[in-house]
């Protein structure tokens, strides 16, 4: 059974601009799915509709076989604790330490008072340290977030998502602000999270080559519509042409190299 099902999803901003129209796809447990498409295609909008940071206009989203779109506030919070989110600009609290930022991932499961006072149990703290260890941030636990490099910040972002014990990660262009080396480290971590921990990972990306290299499946979006949905290996230059329209020429050149290699 699919972990996430998206049926006939539409999202309209204002009267005329349709950001998403009739989007259908489903994602299996533990799958690594990448969403690609030109700027303004609706990738971020789609991702944000899934955990209802944006409310969809129509259609249905089912997560763990539960309809997400008409949940009450409390139930929605519960669903959100099961979905981690990672951002291009990391979105950490700069003045707080790495471990404090990591523990923020636990707020959703705490009482208001415990969250307000920042009271975390010994187990939660141990889990945070364990996760930070795995992500190679052992030495940085007490460093302030604004003293980290971009790649380190993004790893803290991942740690904050992982401590939620999520079933799924939503990543909105996690490597768009990083240099190639840090980008590779982040993508490797995400891949490992999906294969070894069985967590479903959905990533928005701009780089087609990275998408092909890491994904089990690629979903291509153009003007709010799914125009490709299939395994990464099967993608042809024609598919890329369909996803990116006129921008595609350069990209196809890149792909040739990747398939050859």
């Amino acid at each position: 059974m699919a972990l996430l099902e998206v049926n006939q999803l539409t999202k309209q901003f204002g009267k005329h601009s349709k950001a998403l129209s009739d989007v259908n796809f489903s994602v299996q447990e533990g799958e690594f799915v990448t969403i690609i498409g030109p700027s303004g295609a609706g990738k971020s909008t789609l991702l944000r509709c899934i955990n209802r940071m944006i409310d969809a206009t129509g259609g249905e989203i089912r997560f763990q076989d539960k309809s997400v779109l008409n949940l009450k506030k409390k139930e929605l919070k519960q669903v959100r604790t099961k979905i981690g989110m990672i951002f291009q600009h990391y979105n950490l609290v700069n003045r707080l330490s790495v471990i404090e930022n990591t523990l923020h991932g636990k707020l959703g499961t705490k009482s208001t008072m415990a969250g307000v006072l920042g009271l975390y149990s010994q187990e939660e703290k141990q889990q945070a340290v364990r996760i930070l260890n795995v992500l190679g941030l052992k030495e940085m636990i007490y460093k302030r977030a604004d003293q980290l490099s971009g790649g380190q910040k993004q790893r803290v972002g991942i740690a904050r998502a992982l401590i939620q014990n999520p079933r799924m990660l939503l990543c909105d262009e996690p490597i768009a602000s990083l240099d190639p080396n840090s980008a590779k480290v982040i993508m490797d971590h995400l891949k490992k999270i999906s294969t070894t921990m069985g967590i479903t990972v959905i990533v928005n990306l701009h780089q087609v080559d990275v998408a092909i290299k890491y994904s089990d499946r690629i979903i291509g979006i153009n003007s709010g519509q799914v125009v490709y949905n299939g395994p990464a290996e099967n993608m042809t230059p024609e598919d890329i042409q369909r996803i990116y329209g006129s921008e595609a020429d350069e990209l196809i050149f890149d792909i040739g190299g990747i398939h050859a290699g």
Partner: peptide
């Protein structure tokens, strides 16, 4: 930054928790 607030909202934190944390 609005993104920081969004990040905590997305993990299920409530308004008071976001304010104080």
């Amino acid at each position: 930054d609005r993104g920081v607030i969004e990040a905590l909202q997305a993990s299920g934190a409530n308004w008071w928790q976001i304010v104080f944390q």
